[in-house]
Amino acid sequence: MSNTDANTSTGYNFAYLDEQTKRMIRRAILKAVAIPGYQVPFASREMPLPYGWGTGGIQVTASIIGPDDTLKVIDQGADDTTNAVSIRRFFERTAGTATTERTTEASLIQTRHRIPETPLREHQIIVYQVPIPEPLRWVEPREAETRKMHALAEYGAMYVRLYEDIAQFGHITTTYDYPVMVDGRYLMRPSPIPKFDNPKMDMNPALQLFGAGREKRIYAVPPYTSVESLDFADHPFTIERWEQSCEICGSRDSFLDEVITDDRGTRVFVCSDTDHCRQRGAAKAAE
């Protein structure tokens, strides 16, 4: 993609946000990195995309993106889903930075609901879009109380919920946005990634940033930080497995989307991560 001069074409500052706002957000990001997993309140701005559609992630990306960055945007693991397209276009218009669909070529990745299958490297940054940042929200609706619980590391209520799941269903029934303990101190929501992706967060060489625009919180997991999914000693955390393999590339260990292909309910399974699938497919064809 070409580097267009964003300033003259749109009349907006580079990456849309004014420099003061970027500075405010970067300060919040620094605080977040200094306290892994802790939710830092920030004055989220109204953006041209609606709340709930990635404004937090967009503000984080807009605050750290530079003219030399290469941006990848995915939603549900795919570059071509409507909202990923919309967000990528937004940055093409307002920042004019290079964009890519290849995980290995990106310096900055904004994502909704997946972590790429391709392992990330040092100096890459991944920005997650977060709808509800507070992991204790389902056990305690009041913000004043959850703040205290985090401050005092009072996380028993979360384990009580997991206990109830096992008592009722025999399993922990959370399958996405699965709560994690970061650096052994703060309870965190990883955003609605499937629990399949949780292990990727642990000791990841990349910087992981999380932006919640509507709820006005930013949090972070610095590189090489421990991220453990909550469980019980006798009900350990497990990830999903499929019996099928990817219809296109044959992968047996990536997250698969179920696609219904006709009105008789015929189903095929394909990799959710379209870039990963394409690379694998190309490698296989080259053999």
């Binding site: 109204e46 609606p50 709340y51 709930g52 559609w53 404004t55 939603d75 549900q76 693991g77 889903t81 409507t82 909202n83 909704r112 609901h113 997946r114 709808p131 399993h171 029934t173 399958t175 996405y176 946005d177 609605p192 990634i193 499937p194 629990k195 399949f196 509507r214 999903e240 997250f255 698969l256 989307d257 179920e258 959710s272």
Partner: peptide, 25 residues
């Protein structure tokens, strides 16, 4: 209303990965 409308309507966005996780379970 901007927050409420955004979040309510965000349900229109693809959620099929999370839904897949639920289907599995």
């Amino acid at each position: 209303s901007v927050e409420a409308s955004g979040f309510v309507q965000h349900l229109k966005l693809p959620h099929y990965v999370d839904f897949q996780a639920e289907l599995n379970l």
